[in-house]
């Protein structure tokens, strides 16, 4: 079990413009993509996660698409000076040029969500230009009134008729190198991942899947890996609001027999 690719534990840093200064980005948590709580500074927190040996980081700018603003480069550039692990950034990415700008400023991967739905040819264009390994298609999912999973865009504000499994397959075909699947219903609720959603997507694609939305206890990560078969689990609220850091969570995951990096 030791000699194999490890499952990944990924703190997710969600950012919004500060209520006090539009130029300043603050780290926030959300509940079902609403109820925003400011919790700190994204780059400082990223450094803490580096010290705690997180496997990767995901930075998401929650305001960019709703405000039709370009993605921010200064946060990732600052983080890249001191953080030596893979970093994904998303929020407001609409073009190959946006990809280029973020990659030049220190991102290793770029997440696209709304733009991928409305201009899916961007997935292919970015994948051909920069390689599939840096194209992460982020899929936000909510259950409708009859319990069916549907894809939402614009940071959970706009519904679509897309079935997330079909969309995931299409994203892979178009050149996505990885999928970030988030349950809006579970986001920030600490009720556990939507395992059914994750498992359905993992079974239907061959690219790595990052599961997100709902982790409240370490066992939720274990479920994501064992039942959901996710390659990675990402969490925001989980690491922000309790006495749990990636090192402790890692020990729980290892004890469940899941291959994860221990010696760092």
């Amino acid at each position: 079990m030791k000699y194999m690719l490890k499952r990944r534990l990924i703190p997710k840093l969600q950012m919004k413009q500060s209520r006090f200064s539009a130029e300043h980005m603050v780290l926030v948590t959300t509940v079902q993509f609403n109820k925003v709580i400011e919790v700190g500074d994204p780059v400082s927190q990223a450094k803490i996660y580096q010290a705690q040996a997180a496997d990767e980081l995901i930075f998401l700018d929650l305001d960019a698409t709703p405000q039709s603003r370009k993605p921010l480069t200064h946060i990732i550039r600052k983080a890249a000076e001191e953080i030596f692990m893979p970093m994904t950034i998303g929020g407001g990415v609409q073009s190959v040029q946006d990809f280029r700008l973020l990659l030049e400023n220190g991102a290793d991967k770029v997440a696209i969500n709304t733009a991928a739905v409305y201009t899916p040819e961007l997935i292919t264009a970015a994948s051909e230009r920069f390689g599939a390994q840096c194209v992460v298609v982020s899929i936000d999912v909510r259950r409708n009134e009859v319990g069916k999973h549907r894809v939402w865009t614009h940071c959970g504000k706009q519904p679509t008729n897309l079935d997330p499994v079909e969309w995931a397959q299409q994203a892979e075909e178009r050149g996505a190198g990885e999928l970030l699947v988030t349950s809006i219903d579970r986001d920030g609720t600490r009720q556990g991942l939507d395992i059914e959603l994750i498992a359905r997507i993992v079974e239907s694609v061959s690219v790595p899947v990052i599961a997100a939305g709902g982790c409240g206890v370490a066992l939720d990560f274990v479920d994501g890996f064992l039942k959901g078969k996710a390659d990675a689990v990402a969490a925001g609220t989980f690491f922000c609001f309790q006495d749990q850091n990636p090192m402790q969570t890692r020990a729980h995951i290892a004890n469940a027999g899941i291959p994860i990096r221990l010696h760092t």
């Binding site: 000699y3 690719l5 490890k6 496997d55 390994q133 990885e178 061959s206 790595p208 990675a232």
Partner: peptide, 13 residues
Amino acid sequence: HLRIPQIGWNTTT
């Protein structure tokens, strides 16, 4: 079941 690309941390001997 192993996915391509290999993305992540792997034991290196």
